Lab assay of single mutants.
Amino acid sequence: SEIVKHAEEALERGEFVRIEHNGRVIEIRNEEALEELRRWVEK
């Protein structure tokens, strides 16, 4: 997914991403959060 790709690229640069999706906000700061995002987006 485009969202996950964006988050992965930001993590590689040492940045973090805040994503709003279906009214929820998730902050991607590490691999664990990235995995959570993947599960969340796939639903």
Rank of each mutant, 00 (worst) to 15 (best):
R24F: 14
R38M: 06
N30E: 04
A10C: 13
A10Y: 06
E12V: 11
E42L: 13
R29Y: 11
V17N: 03
E42K: 10
R38Q: 04
E35Y: 06
V4L: 15
F16S: 08
W40S: 03
E2C: 15
A33M: 12
E31Q: 15
V4W: 12
R24S: 06
L34I: 07
E31S: 12
E32P: 04
E42R: 09
H6A: 14
A7F: 04
A33K: 06
V17M: 10
E36T: 10
E42M: 13
E15D: 10
W40G: 02
V4F: 09
G23D: 04
V17W: 07
G23L: 02
R24H: 09
L37D: 00
N22A: 12
A10S: 07
R38L: 04
H6L: 15
F16H: 09
E31D: 08
E27Q: 06
R24V: 10
E2P: 07
F16A: 07
E12W: 13
E12A: 15
R38C: 03
I28M: 03
V41H: 04
V4G: 02
R39Y: 08
R18A: 09
G14C: 11
E9M: 12
E42Y: 12
A33T: 11
V25M: 07
F16W: 12
E31V: 14
K5E: 04
V25W: 12
A7C: 08
R38F: 03
A33I: 06
G14P: 01
N30C: 09
I28K: 00
R18G: 03
G23S: 03
I26H: 07
H6W: 15
E20R: 11
R29V: 14
E12I: 12
K5T: 06
E8T: 13
R29M: 11
L37V: 03
A10I: 05
E36S: 08
A33L: 08
E27D: 10
L34R: 00
R13A: 05
E9L: 13
E36A: 13
E9C: 11
L37H: 00
K43L: 14
E9F: 06
I3N: 04
E32H: 09
E9S: 09
E35C: 10
E12L: 15
V17T: 08
E31P: 11
E12Y: 13
V17H: 05
A7R: 01
V41L: 12
E42V: 08
I28C: 04
E35N: 11
A7T: 03
I19R: 00
A33D: 15
R18T: 14
E20W: 15
I26F: 15
E20T: 12
V41I: 13
